[in-house]
């Protein structure tokens, strides 16, 4: 079973609805570590050696965060800037993350329809996530399609419940499968065949 590290970044966790629910659904899963970045580093003073040690102990890295201005909250960016060091995560001798899996788990206010050429955001979520994808790639990690809860502003209680259950399902699937089969049509984690059947 793979160990999953959820790097959670939300500056107002106590006010979030969806992210809280998502997090709670996986909190008690064996082999899952939740690392609440804003709680741990309120002053952005990231303990790099400790973060590296944590990464070493896990096989799958999930960047879970709300999708702010088409990207992540600043602390997660700080984390990426500081922890993914030259000579450790990439560059000469930088192989520490080689072979790990990596993905974003995001929540967006706008609906799926808004994230397309015809929608107000013009580009898809996957387009916006390119920097993360490439970051993972340069570190030698396998970047998986994102898990996304979209249109959170209008999300009904039942829909939320379904999304939350799906998240737990997806994380468990990631833990169990040695590799995830994706094909070109997989824009989201939930599109991979193994999960699609569950919906």
């Amino acid at each position: 079973m793979k160990n999953v590290l959820i790097l959670f970044a939300h500056p107002r966790h106590e006010a979030s609805r969806v992210n809280q629910a998502l997090l709670e659904s996986v909190r008690d899963l064996p082999g899952v570590t939740i690392h609440d970045l804003y709680e741990k580093y309120p002053d952005f003073f990231i303990d790099v050696p400790a973060e590296k040690a944590l990464l070493d102990q896990h096989d799958t890295i999930v960047w879970q965060h709300p999708f702010y201005w088409y990207s992540c909250p600043p602390l997660l960016k700080q984390w990426i800037d500081l922890v993914l060091e030259f000579g450790w995560a990439y560059g000469p001798g930088g192989h520490a993350l080689q072979g790990k899996q990596c993905l974003n788990a995001i929540t967006t206010g706008g609906s799926l329809a808004m994230y397309c050429a015809q929608g107000s955001n013009v580009y898809s979520v996957n387009d916006f996530l390119r920097p993360f994808e490439q970051t993972a790639a340069i570190c030698g990690m396998e970047y998986l399609p994102p898990f996304a809860v979209m249109g959170t502003h209008k999300l009904e209680v039942n829909d939320l419940k379904r999304e939350v259950a799906l998240y737990a399902e997806a994380i468990q699937l990631l833990q169990q499968s040695p590799s995830i089969e994706t094909d070109e049509g997989c824009a989201f984690l939930t599109d991979i065949p193994a999960l699609k059947n569950k919906i």
Partner: peptide, 16 residues
């Protein structure tokens, strides 16, 4: 710390 500092990288860059 080396964060936000490109000196190391420049050094490495020279080499390859």
């Amino acid at each position: 710390d080396n964060h936000w500092d490109s000196e190391q990288m420049r050094a490495a860059h020279k080499n390859d």
